[in-house]
């Protein structure tokens, strides 16, 4: 029994060692593929979220260095939404920003009353910076062509999404396409709108159009063209035409522009409330971030109770009883006792 109790304590310690490692909210992506692009002066990128616990004390934002001059990032935290009360500020100097893909931590005086409240944070730079926040778009991604190695010529880029063959692998594997993301270079804040026209490759019939901007800059990032879901896109041939404002270009390779297609639904948990650019909502997407608040044992147990339920308690009981029984195997043989 003593042995089982000792092991039980080890188990409890192992569980409670997670206290410091549990973010309040976190967007977890094993593979980050789409970045927002550089932050332009006067066009901060932001994100709204709902805090679960009190004591909000830090936010980590996933940043990717994409070349150019590193600049300090100013952080603002507001209550409610982009226009809400400013409650905390922080700043990371250029030299302290991650040198490779990683988290940048913005720490501040804890907010005791953060439990259950909505917040919005924004990242601002004086001018175009070398670090881009990662973005998670709400959909089922299917990479047609990953980030390319060249800027494609021309302000109008046309191409096709084709099944296999002729492609080695189909460009559209799923049935319900609702967004196409294109890798984009230097769409200035003052530039005009970008436009996507999607048509049937065989008949030429225009199926969907979508536009982004004006006022939504994107440099070395992905531009997401959202449209009403096209239900029958599986293994289908579609033709696209992207019209770009002056000075902008698409990124791609010899085969065409870099594209990620998004299918399926868009439901995510209710604690992430969407990304913003200069306070305007960027639909269907979130910056990749995590928020840190209270790290008490009771917060951990509350989450365990809520998400694990009674079955975890029963599991613990069965596990402890197993240890008690197994410990009896370690005694002397039965003949020896007799």
């Amino acid at each position: 029994m003593l042995r089982a109790i000792v092991i039980g304590v080890v188990g409890l310690l192992a569980l409670f060692s997670w206290r410091e490692e549990l973010p309040d909210v976190e967007i977890r992506l094993q593979q980050r593929t789409t970045q927002a692009g550089r932050i332009f002066g006067g066009h901060p990128l932001g994100q709204s979220f709902r805090c679960e616990h009190g004591g909000l004390r830090a936010l980590d934002v996933a940043l990717a260095p994409i070349g150019g001059e590193a600049r300090a990032i100013d952080f603002e935290l507001r209550r409610g939404g982009p226009g809400g009360e400013l409650v905390r500020r922080a700043r990371i100097e250029a030299a302290a920003l991650p040198a490779s893909d990683g988290w940048a931590r913005f720490e501040f005086e804890p907010l005791a009353d953060s439990a259950g409240q909505d917040f919005h944070f924004a990242l601002a730079c004086e001018d175009r910076n070398a670090h881009s926040p990662w973005v998670r778009y709400r959909g089922v991604p299917y990479a047609v062509r990953s980030w390319g190695d060249r800027a494609l010529e021309g302000s109008v880029v046309e191409g096709e999404l084709l099944p296999a063959p002729p492609r080695a692998q189909t460009d559209l594997h799923h049935g319900d396409l609702h967004t196409l993301a294109f890798a984009t270079n230097y769409v200035h804040p003052q530039a005009g709108a970008m436009k996507l026209t999607l048509s049937d490759a065989l008949t030429g019939e225009v199926l969907r159009t979508s536009s982004v901007g004006p006022g939504i800059p994107c440099d070395t990032g992905w531009t997401f063209f959202h449209f009403e879901t096209l239900a029958d896109t599986r293994w289908r041939a579609l033709r696209f035409k992207v019209e770009l404002p002056t000075g902008a270009s698409l990124i791609g390779n010899a085969e065409g522009p870099s594209i990620v297609a998004y299918h399926g639904g868009s439901q995510v948990s209710g604690d992430v409330l969407g990304a913003t650019c200069a306070g305007a909502a960027l639909p269907q997407r979130d910056l990749v971030f995590r928020a840190w608040s209270s790290s008490t044992r009771s917060a951990l147990l509350a989450r365990l109770r809520e998400r694990g339920g009674e079955r975890i308690l029963w599991a613990a009981l069965a596990w402890f009883m197993a240890l008690v029984v197994a410990s009896r195997l370690l005694g002397r043989p039965v003949e020896g006792r007799e």
Binding site: V10, D286, L304
Partner: peptide, 26 residues
Amino acid sequence: AMLLFIYDALFLWGGLVPNECLLWGS
């Protein structure tokens, strides 16, 4: 046996349960 039990405790209560019940993405 103690080493084995400790390994199991770390796996179950320091790995499986926290990862499945405590740490969820949003």
